[in-house]
Design a protein around this nucleic acid. Sequence first.
DNA 1: ACGATTGTGTCAAACGATTGACATGTCAAA
DNA 2: TTTGACATGTCAATCGTTTGACACAATCGT
Lengths: 324, 324
Amino acid sequence: MATINDVAERAGLSVTTVSRVLNNRGYISEKTRRKVYDTMAELNYQPNEIARSLLRKQSNLIGLIVPNVSHPFFGELTDAIEYHAYRLGYKLLLCNSQLDPAKERDYIEMMKRHRVDGIIMGSHTLEVQEYRNLNYPLVTIDRRIDAIPYVASDNGRGGELAAELLIGKGCRKIAHFCGNLQLDMLSNLRTTAFEDKLRSHGITFITLQTDMNVFDQQEYERLMATLFQSHPDIDGVFATSDIIASFVIKWCRKLGKEIPQDIRIIGYDDVNAATWVSPAITTIKQPIEDMGRLAVELIRKQIDGEPFETENVLPVGLIERETT
Amino acid sequence: MATINDVAERAGLSVTTVSRVLNNRGYISEKTRRKVYDTMAELNYQPNEIARSLLRKQSNLIGLIVPNVSHPFFGELTDAIEYHAYRLGYKLLLCNSQLDPAKERDYIEMMKRHRVDGIIMGSHTLEVQEYRNLNYPLVTIDRRIDAIPYVASDNGRGGELAAELLIGKGCRKIAHFCGNLQLDMLSNLRTTAFEDKLRSHGITFITLQTDMNVFDQQEYERLMATLFQSHPDIDGVFATSDIIASFVIKWCRKLGKEIPQDIRIIGYDDVNAATWVSPAITTIKQPIEDMGRLAVELIRKQIDGEPFETENVLPVGLIERETT
DNA sequence: ACGATTGTGTCAAACGATTGACATGTCAAA
DNA sequence: TTTGACATGTCAATCGTTTGACACAATCGT
């Protein structure tokens, strides 16, 4: 691969001059500028970003850790993050933790070695202490750790909205699929708020935990079987992801339950997949695009030393479709 | 951030010695080795991969370009690629082209500047000439360009299997949703093989083009409306992705068509989403995991100068579920 | 004709690590 | 006592680029 020296030599100029046109500094005549560009094209020269990064102490890389990009929520979030990172001139280093602490730790180390400019943590399976010691531009999705800036949507409000809708539709016995409550994530607020609301209305509910971030279809199926066997009379379901909701729909069909007459279902996230199934899923919309934009923005601000908000909670919305 | 000099100084050793323990070369006493590791931990030292890359002329980065990770097929493919890249010690640079040639070109340039060790092209919207001139370790997914190694699944066989199944089930008038036939992709072979088979059996068919890689829900809906309006009597559908198939299912429900009694539907890919909808989609399975593994493997072989196959066509399979 | 502006050059240091050449020393085996 | 393995050190070059300091011309306005 051609270097700046090759370009300078071939163009009959000094490296300094070539560097000057590359970086737009100092006086350069139009003729020289053109000569340099021509030669660059001729040699198919691309400035070596590695050398630049070394000198500038800036890699223009952002690390993103998610449980799994093939989960619709994280896929769409990754899309949004990639879009905004690109707009700001950053490249994205993608890591799937698979919710494996060892892999997550390993990836974080790798990223630090590669001197990424910041890390967006969509997965967080480690102990709080480890994140605290990181000492790095960081943004967390859906989890609050000390003073580390985070972006989340209003999970409490989401749970409330779901409860209100189901109550309003007259449901009397409701099942709720939530994520792993052991993990310290803000999405657990959905469950808290949802249960509080139901309790205050004296409505019966059953809460079932899943691992919503890396789906295990088998586990979902087992869970559905258990639920409908022990509680054949539930008339409402609040699932903490649209994917789980789609499994509920499947199971209802299998059991001959009419949706929404016999049972009402509400999902969460409003991923594209919510409209792929029929009936289309009523859901709580997370502003995925905005969350991605904000996450990137927060990294940028930390890099540029600008002030930033630590707590970034975005509004959610109810999207009513055909399952309620 | 601490450098190797800081470590050496603090440990009372020379950089050479520290470097020797880092790289496991030459004689090192157990005592010194421990001293170095302790000091590294103390200073929270991480060797600067940027400096290493510059010297070694190896970034350990693999670039991946896909139309869009939030498309289930590419999400799952990305997962597989990430998994195997990680196993081999590579990090993944993720790029969504959004099927925008300008963005794709721009990303390719960026990747070359960053000296990624190889590029996996899951999106290819540029002119053949541009890829030819790339002169870089490259692997293409589902597209054949000169001698550039590619991985694909047996699209021809896939189309054939779909046709055989539908014919076997007694369908007489079949609709086929294919991707953009203008793009020179191997997935077009599905269409060719499918149509050939139907023709040889004297079965009527209608082929409709979509842009399957970046889904536009609106477009799908429009397409469905058109199809069922002008051909209310179709009794079989072959969709070139499971997502499109799920839209067909939706539309059939809306029109009160029973699946599979009135109409049989077969999708393509066998992504997870194929089982989220009900009835679960009968589909042609692409070995996504293997495709990802092979793609990474092909990049590695090019980097390491090992011999490799240029044509890598993996077998597909029929997964019969509930829509046929 | 003077000084300012413009255009280009030379030189060297710096970024953080690796590596080869070579020197020096200790210690134990032969 | 000699030899060689083991252990560590010094020194300098290298990867490709940027940048500041400084020098030297040519050209321009006045």
